[in-house]
Amino acid sequence: MSFQSLRSFIAEEFALDIPADRLTPELDLIETGIVDSLGVLKLIAFLEGEYDLTITPDELDADLYRSIGQIEELIASKTAAAA
Protein backbone atom coordinates (compact mmCIF):
# COMPACT_ATOMS: atom_id res chain seq x y z
CA MET A 1 0.00 0.00 0.00
CA SER A 2 1.24 3.49 -0.76
CA PHE A 3 1.21 6.04 1.96
CA GLN A 4 2.33 8.85 -0.33
CA SER A 5 -1.06 10.55 -0.16
CA LEU A 6 -0.96 10.52 3.65
CA ARG A 7 2.43 12.22 3.63
CA SER A 8 1.26 14.75 1.04
CA PHE A 9 -1.85 15.49 3.08
CA ILE A 10 0.12 16.10 6.27
CA ALA A 11 2.68 18.23 4.43
CA GLU A 12 0.05 20.33 2.67
CA GLU A 13 -2.37 20.67 5.54
CA PHE A 14 -0.04 21.15 8.47
CA ALA A 15 3.56 21.58 7.41
CA LEU A 16 3.76 23.55 4.16
CA ASP A 17 7.25 24.91 4.73
CA ILE A 18 8.81 21.77 6.18
CA PRO A 19 11.08 19.89 3.71
CA ALA A 20 9.71 16.40 2.97
CA ASP A 21 12.84 14.67 4.29
CA ARG A 22 12.33 16.26 7.71
CA LEU A 23 8.85 14.69 8.10
CA THR A 24 10.30 11.43 9.35
CA PRO A 25 8.09 8.48 10.34
CA GLU A 26 9.04 8.96 14.01
CA LEU A 27 8.48 12.72 14.30
CA ASP A 28 5.97 13.40 17.09
CA LEU A 29 3.28 15.41 15.32
CA ILE A 30 1.31 16.16 18.50
CA GLU A 31 4.10 17.26 20.79
CA THR A 32 5.57 19.53 18.10
CA GLY A 33 2.12 21.09 17.76
CA ILE A 34 2.09 20.31 14.00
CA VAL A 35 -1.25 18.51 14.51
CA ASP A 36 -3.48 19.78 17.33
CA SER A 37 -6.74 18.29 18.60
CA LEU A 38 -8.70 19.85 15.75
CA GLY A 39 -6.00 18.70 13.33
CA VAL A 40 -6.50 15.11 14.50
CA LEU A 41 -10.17 15.33 13.49
CA LYS A 42 -9.21 16.67 10.04
CA LEU A 43 -6.68 13.90 9.69
CA ILE A 44 -9.27 11.27 10.63
CA ALA A 45 -11.75 12.66 8.08
CA PHE A 46 -8.99 12.41 5.48
CA LEU A 47 -8.07 8.82 6.42
CA GLU A 48 -11.71 7.70 6.24
CA GLY A 49 -12.13 9.22 2.77
CA GLU A 50 -8.76 8.32 1.31
CA TYR A 51 -8.36 4.76 2.63
CA ASP A 52 -12.02 3.83 2.87
CA LEU A 53 -11.80 3.16 6.62
CA THR A 54 -14.20 3.60 9.48
CA ILE A 55 -12.60 5.11 12.55
CA THR A 56 -14.59 4.02 15.62
CA PRO A 57 -15.30 6.44 18.50
CA ASP A 58 -12.72 4.49 20.53
CA GLU A 59 -10.09 5.40 17.97
CA LEU A 60 -10.73 9.14 18.26
CA ASP A 61 -7.66 9.26 20.44
CA ALA A 62 -4.87 11.69 19.58
CA ASP A 63 -2.36 9.19 20.97
CA LEU A 64 -3.04 6.87 18.01
CA TYR A 65 -1.94 9.52 15.50
CA ARG A 66 1.30 10.74 17.07
CA SER A 67 3.58 10.04 14.13
CA ILE A 68 3.40 9.21 10.44
CA GLY A 69 4.78 5.75 11.21
CA GLN A 70 2.06 5.11 13.75
CA ILE A 71 -0.69 6.33 11.42
CA GLU A 72 0.63 4.08 8.64
CA GLU A 73 0.52 1.09 10.97
CA LEU A 74 -3.05 1.92 11.96
CA ILE A 75 -4.15 2.16 8.32
CA ALA A 76 -2.39 -1.12 7.49
CA SER A 77 -3.96 -2.99 10.40
CA LYS A 78 -7.45 -1.66 9.71
CA THR A 79 -7.21 -2.39 5.99
CA ALA A 80 -5.99 -5.92 6.74
CA ALA A 81 -8.84 -6.47 9.20
CA ALA A 82 -11.42 -5.30 6.64
CA ALA A 83 -10.03 -7.48 3.82
Partner: peptide, 23 residues
Protein backbone atom coordinates in the same frame (compact mmCIF):
# COMPACT_ATOMS: atom_id res chain seq x y z
CA UNK B 1 14.91 27.93 9.05
CA UNK B 2 11.45 26.35 8.86
CA UNK B 3 8.51 25.85 11.20
CA UNK B 4 9.72 22.40 12.28
CA UNK B 5 12.98 23.86 13.62
CA UNK B 6 10.97 26.43 15.53
CA UNK B 7 8.57 23.81 16.90
CA UNK B 8 11.39 21.56 18.04
CA UNK B 9 12.98 24.54 19.75
CA UNK B 10 9.78 25.70 21.49
CA UNK B 11 9.03 22.15 22.67
CA UNK B 12 12.04 22.31 24.96
CA UNK B 13 10.52 25.01 27.16
CA UNK B 14 6.84 25.53 26.36
CA UNK B 15 3.78 23.36 27.03
CA UNK B 16 2.05 22.14 23.83
CA UNK B 17 -0.84 24.68 23.89
CA UNK B 18 1.75 27.50 23.77
CA UNK B 19 3.20 26.23 20.46
CA UNK B 20 1.70 28.23 17.55
CA UNK B 21 -0.43 26.43 14.99
CA UNK B 22 0.78 28.63 12.13
CA UNK B 23 4.20 30.16 11.53
Amino acid sequence: LNSLDLRLHLMKTLPTPAIPRNF
